[in-house]
Simulated assay, not measured.
Amino acid sequence: MGEPYLIGEAMTGGYGKGADILHACTIAVERGEIAVIVGPNGAGKSTAMKAVFGMLDLRSGHVRLDGRDITKLSPQDRVAQGMGFVPQTHNIFGSMTVEENLEMGAFIRRDDFRGTLAQVYDLFPILKDKRHQAAGELSGGQRQQVAVGRALMTQPKVLMLDEPTAGVSPIVMDELFDRIIEVARSGISILMVEQNARQALEIADKGYVLVQGANAFTGTGKDLLENPDVRRSFLGG
């Protein structure tokens, strides 16, 4: 077995000159795989994802994409290398239309992106219906679709999602997860931080449980769901 397509290996670091939040944390995802990071509040889940995306300095450890060391690259350069990132909040331009938001996602493209736009509309039909509406007027679930769609406009090889179902109803959460599965089936790797741990692990090929910035449990989604220690400590029994 070769190295995973994307790996943040033994990452230790924090924000600025503050204390370390991550402690030798390792997160990896294969091509076309869904990897989910779960754990209690304050466990360092979002920090681990931001470290993989280059949003904080690592004191030790490495990030590699398709065998290339990208540890020193800026987030912007990582986007150019094929990484898309959707933050939990402030992830759309509210005063711009849905279509303008999606077009903003193609800012690094020099080719004709209309084919990708059509693919996003196929994935999220409601966005096509509302393409001329201000994104800020949409429901929470629809705004998340805009944010994911905009990230897909860069044609990423890896799509990173920070709490994509935060604040949405269970029905909308299920719909978003279905779309995320579709994206993974197209060959794009998904790395996702998710508070709804049980539901996320049900769709995960691989899961990471973090506690205090370190790996506590790692396994397939199915294995973690069946692990009595994980169930008792993180899934409510």
Rank of each mutant, 00 (worst) to 15 (best):
M49Q: 14
M49A: 14
K50P: 01
K50C: 05
K50R: 15
A51E: 05
A51L: 04
A51V: 00
A51N: 11
V52E: 03
V52L: 04
V52R: 01
F53Y: 15
F53P: 08
F53N: 07
M55A: 15
L56N: 12
D57A: 13
D57S: 12
D57M: 07
L58Y: 02
R59E: 14
R59C: 08
S60L: 03
S60W: 00
S60H: 08
G61D: 12
G61C: 02
G61A: 07
H62K: 14
H62T: 14
H62D: 10
V63I: 12
V63G: 03
V63Q: 02
R64C: 00
R64L: 03
R64A: 05
R64I: 04
L65Q: 09
L65K: 10
D66R: 04
D66P: 01
G67N: 12
R68P: 02
R68L: 07
R68G: 01
R68H: 13
R68S: 06
R68T: 15
D69K: 09
D69T: 11
D69V: 03
I70H: 07
I70K: 11
I70E: 05
T71L: 06
T71C: 08
K72A: 12
K72P: 05
S74D: 02
S74I: 07
P75A: 00
P75C: 00
P75Q: 03
P75K: 01
Q76N: 08
Q76L: 01
D77G: 06
D77H: 09
R78N: 03
R78D: 02
V79M: 01
V79Y: 00
V79C: 13
A80N: 11
Q81K: 15
G82L: 05
G82Q: 04
G82V: 08
M83W: 09
G84F: 12
G84I: 09
F85D: 10
F85T: 12
V86E: 12
V86K: 08
V86R: 10
V86D: 09
P87T: 10
P87E: 09
P87H: 08
P87Q: 06
P87Y: 10
P87C: 07
Q88I: 07
T89H: 15
T89E: 15
T89A: 13
T89S: 14
H90A: 08
H90T: 07
N91M: 04
I92D: 01
I92N: 06
I92M: 04
F93T: 00
G94F: 02
G94P: 12
G94T: 14
S95W: 02
S95M: 06
S95T: 12
T97G: 09
T97Q: 05
T97F: 01
V98H: 05
V98R: 04
V98S: 11
